[in-house]
Amino acid sequence: MASSVVKVEDVNKVYGSRKEASYQALDNVSFSIGEGEFVGVMGASGSGKTTLLQTIAALDRVTSGSITIAGTNVTDMKEKELTDFRARRLGFIFQDFNLLENMTVYENIALPLFLQNQKGGSVREEVQRAAGMLGMEDTLSKYPAMISGGQKQRAAAARALVHHPSMILADEPTGALDSGNAKGLLETLQHLNENHGVTIMMVTHDAFSASYCGRILFLEDGRLYKEMQRNGTREEFFKQILDEQAEAGKKKL
């Protein structure tokens, strides 16, 4: 494994301050993600997977423990530094595409670069590069309302990687897509990971989506209880995941 991009150590996240009303969303979670990895985080609703993603994205603070991203400890950063860090080092893909419908696809993709005050020529170059990686060159001048859901999500992916982030964080990226478009997007992510070495962390509850990852972390009630490495084909991996889910389901019965 190459050097680690994310290092999560003994992270706890407790919501609510009063003892009786508090709720532990993350319970002593530790793991790391190496450079160029495509890691999935699986779990049912309420298992804490979105909380985990948000703490890594520095959108939410941890109660204890530390998170280090690309050598930077984000847990003791100030709000302003965090914002800056997020803007420079992370790329996001959300379930609802989160494109700004009053801006063209080009402007949407270019937004992270504008925010870093990059100038005209280099911006155009970077946007073209990101769009090219995702096959979006023809839709750049269109508004989000004029393109399909799949294209929107690809545009969101292009925006996530236009500024060369250390890692892309994806939160149920296929949640709002039909099966055809979902498959397309997952293949795109896999392609980005394999051919361009982009590190991706994806949160999902769907076994099919998860089967595209190289490694999967299983989360339940805020605890990491299992880790699975993909060794064979995607089909085999998919089966393993389903078995694991069935196993976990049986225990509850």
Binding site: F85, R86, L90, F92, L100, L111, P112, L115
Partner: peptide
């Protein structure tokens, strides 16, 4: 829109 902008790292 503003929530999204903040998520991708636009400062308040």
């Amino acid at each position: 829109r503003y929530r999204m902008l903040q998520n991708i790292g636009v400062s308040r």
